[in-house]
Design a protein around this nucleic acid. Structure first.
Lengths: 197, 197
DNA sequence: TTTTTTAGTATCGGATCAATACCACAGACC
DNA sequence: GGTCTGTGGTATTGATCCGATACTAAAAAA
C-alpha cells in the first residue's frame, strides 16, 4: 500500500466525483443540480449562526454571487425559505421548507454512502474522520475560511448542565440537539484532531 | 466525536470542494478549469491500459461526450497528445505532452494538499486510504464502473522477478514503475481493503 | 454479410460559475 | 449628525461545463 498522501487526495477526489454523480441522479427528478442537493444538505445541518448565503458560499467554496443564484432557484422551487435577520438587516437567514425537508427525507442523498459504509466499523470511520478533519483544518490555515465543525467538539462550547450548553463565542445558550449541528465559527478542541504521533 | 458515516461524507465533500477551488486557482493562469487540471493529473497517473477518453470519463464520473470536449481543449492548448491505438483503431490514446508535464510540475496542484498532510503520520494516511478505498470499492458495486487502483495491489499483478511483473488480465509484462500507476481493471487483493472487524 | 456493440466526436441547449457592478445596512471616525 | 469604509446580498453578463442526442467508424458477433 502506498503511503503517499497523494493517493489519499486521489481517493477523496474520486469519492466526491462519484457522490456528485449520485447527487445529480438524486436531483434529476426535481430538476436540481448536484450543487443544489449539496446546498439542501448543508442547510439541514447548519446551526442558527451559519444558515446564511455567505456561510454556504464558504462551505461550497463558491463565490457569493454564484450561491445567491442557486438560492434563488431553490426559493422559487419552494424548497427553502429566506427571511431577514432581526438584528442585522443585511443578512438573509435560510432554512429548509417542509417541501425541502420532504425532498431530502424521500430522496436521501446519503443513502448510497450509508450502504457503502455499512460494513465499516465505527472505529475505522471515527479514525478516518479524525484524519480528514485534521487535513481540512490545515487546508483552511492556508486557504482562509472556516472549517465548519459541530459544536459538541468546539472549544467555545461549554456544558452548563445535563441539557444546556453555552457558546462562549456568540454568548448564547445551545440546546442538546443544537450542539450536533455544524457551525462556521467552530474551532476543534485538542483531542479531536489527530496528532503527529 | 460523531461516528456517523455521514460526517465522513461531509468531510470528503468539503475537502473535494476546497481542492476544486485550489485547482481552479492553479488553472486560472492557463485558462484551465478544475476539471482540466483533474484530467491532466489523471493522465499523469494512468497506466497504458487506462489512458483513454473512456477511462477518464469513468474516472471523473462524467459522460464521454463531455470529456471529449475537455480533451479537445487540452489538445488545442498543446497540453496533451492524442494518437490512435495500433490494434483497435477506434480507441484514442492520450498522454501528457512535454508542455503538459511542465505545467503539472510547475503548478503542482497537489502542493497544498502535501503541505496540509505534512504532519500526518504515514500510518494514519495508510489507514485512511484503506478505509476510503473500501468505500470506493463498495460504491462501485452499486454504481458500475471500475475503482481504478494501482497495479501493485491488484490480484492480476504477479511478480516474476526482481524487476519484472506480469499482468494476468492483459497478459503483458509490467515494469516496476508501471506497477505504481493506476488501472481501470484493478481488482484489489484481499488485505488491501479494510475488513469489518 | 448483416447486425450489434463499442469508442469517440459533433452539436445543441440548459445550467454553473466568476467577475463586475450595484444596493442596503452596519460600524467607525470625525 | 454626517461621511467613509466594510460587509451581506443581489443583478447581470459572458465564458464554460455538462448531459442528451445523434452521428461516424471500427470491432465483434451472428
Amino acid at each position: 500500500m502506498l503511503k503517499n498522501p497523494v493517493v489519499l487526495l486521489d481517493l477523496v477526489d474520486r469519492l466526491a466525483n462519484l457522490m456528485r454523480s449520485e447527487f445529480r441522479r438524486i436531483g434529476s427528478d426535481e430538476g436540481l443540480q448536484p450543487v443544489h442537493v449539496q446546498a439542501l444538505m448543508f442547510l439541514e445541518q447548519a446551526n442558527r449562526f451559519s444558515n446564511t448565503p455567505q456561510a454556504l458560499a464558504e462551505y461550497l467554496g463558491l463565490t457569493k454571487g454564484t450561491v445567491s443564484q442557486s438560492l434563488l432557484l431553490l426559493d422559487r422551487r419552494g424548497l427553502i425559505e429566506r427571511y431577514q435577520d432581526e438584528i442585522d438587516k443585511r443578512v438573509v437567514r435560510l432554512r429548509l421548507s417542509p417541501l425541502g425537508e420532504a425532498f431530502l427525507s424521500e430522496s436521501s442523498p446519503a443513502a448510497l454512502w450509508q450502504t457503502a459504509t455499512r460494513d465499516i466499523s465505527a472505529n475505522r470511520v471515527r479514525y478516518s474522520v479524525s484524519v480528514l478533519r485534521t487535513i481540512l483544518y490545515e487546508l483552511q490555515n492556508y486557504n482562509g475560511g472556516p472549517p465548519f465543525g459541530v459544536c459538541s467538539t468546539c472549544v467555545y462550547c461549554q456544558r452548563k448542565s445535563q441539557r444546556i450548553h453555552h457558546c462562549t463565542w456568540f454568548g448564547e445558550r445551545l440546546s442538546g440537539p443544537e450542539t450536533r449541528k455544524i457551525c462556521r465559527e467552530q474551532v476543534p478542541k485538542t483531542g479531536y484532531l489527530s496528532v503527529t504521533e
